[in-house]
Design a protein around this nucleic acid. Structure first.
Length: 436
RNA sequence: GUGGGCGUAGCUCAGUUGGUUAGAGCAUUAGACUGUGGCUCUAAGGGUCGCGGGUUCGAAUCCCGUCGCUCACCCCA
């Protein structure tokens, strides 16, 4: 096999298909999203949990459902030399629940609220905002069936988007019932759709047998036409699910979250029950979800635990950042276009190599005092050093040459005004600590 | 896995009906009073035109293949 094949640049290695490097120029948005997320999660009483990036394959087969596409063809599965099969996590809910059970949290403190941030893996064809290694941040509230908890999670997501300044998102919500009522209306739906079988698109005809609910969000116009004339799923909910759904909606109104009741919203993962929701952003393409979540009352028992209800969501970080970029109208760059880390406050310019070592000493002196500072390691001329300082956007340049060295002084240039002051070196720290 | 679009300097692109040493802007580097930034001017570096093959006297330009990227579909965050 030739590694030369297909390379674009002259270099041998490139990031594998469907993965991407988050470069310094883009990092500020990631940082902001993560920081705001953490803040909001913790504000609402969620605790961070980190699970391994790989798990026993059976965990995902059990939780997601054997017949789902994720399990059938999208998992990175391999054996680690023994008999065990392991899989790079395609989502983080099942791992969190696994940990919850493994440490027997349900016995000590049944109700737990967790949050996680990390990479997930799905072997799909890459597309806008959809990668093979992608990142999610999400929450899981385990151990309670209160519909208000469903609403709490929606509130958390909404506030995160508000706080990062992302305008133009929509909250869509639906109920897909529970294990009691869902099979009933699945059959009703199937029967009704069978009457129109010939009018459905080819794909939906196969969905008729595999996954009826998926027909509800088919993009084909004819199929839409048919499904829009069907009575909404909510007509078939059992008493318990109906009350649950109504409470959720009322509470959303109560706390002022606008939502769209979308009877066609369904979920691909088997474990969802009752409340499902999705937050989409108008600036995105075909894949417009930036957050998806819902209640999953059967997952814990599915993977061998007691019957315990839970709700959660996952925010797709790539998709969210894409939306942020669209809103901010920014593009990716390989070089920092705005300083993504904090710009150093001070840049030290040395004139002549004789004073360089002393400047290095001063550099470390500043840093020890918690003053961010940097200097030249490339052997540039004083002029070029100034250019670098200017580009970095530092407030002060400390200039030191043989003259200053002899007198025990330093020249400080205030970049904004161009003004220069000369002070004694032993006053340096005080001067900066007062200014910064 | 299926289908469409694209592939020329670090980035964004131009490149006329195939014709000599492939261009621009931005970025980079260096100069324009010997120890100093932003503006301006000058100059320099940087591309085997994704890769391979074919047609041709001659191909970045046409054909085929291949790889990669991208968008969309299935599915999903």
């Amino acid at each position: 096999m030739s590694v030369e094949a297909g390379k674009k640049s002259g270099y041998v290695f490139k990031a594998p298909r469907g993965t991407e490097d988050i470069l310094p120029g883009n990092w500020s948005l990631w940082k902001k999203l993560e920081e705001v997320g953490r803040q909001e999660f913790e504000l609402c009483g969620y605790y961070e949990i980190r699970t391994p990036v790989f798990e026993d394959t059976r965990l995902f087969v059990r939780s997601l459902g054997e017949a789902t596409d994720i399990v059938e063809k999208e998992m990175y599965t391999f054996s680690d030399s023994e008999d065990s099969s392991i899989t790079l996590r395609p989502e983080n809910t099942a791992p969190v629940m696994r940990a919850y059970l493994e440490y027997e949290m349900h016995k000590t403190k049944k109700f737990q609220k967790y949050y996680y941030i990390g990479p997930q893996f799905r072997k799909e064809r890459p597309q806008a905002g959809r990668l093979r290694q992608f990142h999610q941040m999400g929450i899981e509230a385990v151990g309670a069936n209160d519909p208000l908890l469903d609403v709490e999670t929606i509130g958390v997501a909404v506030r995160i988007f508000d706080r990062i300044g992302l305008k133009g998102y929509n909250v869509k919500i639906n109920s897909i019932g529970c294990e009691k009522c869902r099979p009933i209306f699945r059959n009703i739906l199937k029967d009704k759709l069978c009457e129109h079988e010939t009018a459905l698109c080819e794909l939906c005809r196969s969905r008729l047998h595999r996954n009826v609910f998926r027909i509800l969000d088919c993009k084909n116009e004819k199929c839409k036409e048919i499904t829009h004339h069907l009575p909404p799923v909510s007509d078939y909910l059992c008493e318990e699910c109906r009350i649950h759904a109504n409470t959720v909606r009322e509470a959303l109104v109560e706390i002022g979250i606008p939502y769209i009741a979308d009877a066609h919203l369904v979920r691909g993962l088997d474990y969802y029950t009752k409340t499902v929701y999705e937050i989409t952003h108008s600036s995105l393409g075909a894949r417009d979800a930036i957050c998806a979540g819902g209640r999953y009352d059967n997952l814990v028992s599915d993977i061998g635990g007691p019957s315990i209800g839970a709700v959660g969501f996952a925010i797709g970080m790539e998709a969210t950042i894409l939306a942020m970029q669209n809103v901010l109208n920014k593009k990716n760059t390989s070089v920092p276009q705005e300083v993504s880390g904090p710009a150093p406050s001070v840049y030290i310019v040395y004139i002549g190599n004789e004073v360089k070592k002393h400047c290095f000493y001063l550099l470390n002196l500043l840093r020890k005092s918690n003053i961010s500072a940097d200097f030249d390691y490339e052997g540039r001329s004083p002029k070029a050093q100034m250019r670098v300082a200017n580009k970095l956007g530092v407030k002060y340049v400390l200039v030191l040459g043989p003259e200053e060295l002899a007198r025990g002084n330093v020249t400080i240039k205030i970049m904004e005004t161009g003004e220069e002051v000369i002070i004694r070196q032993d006053e340096l720290l005080d001067w900066f600590l007062q200014k910064l």
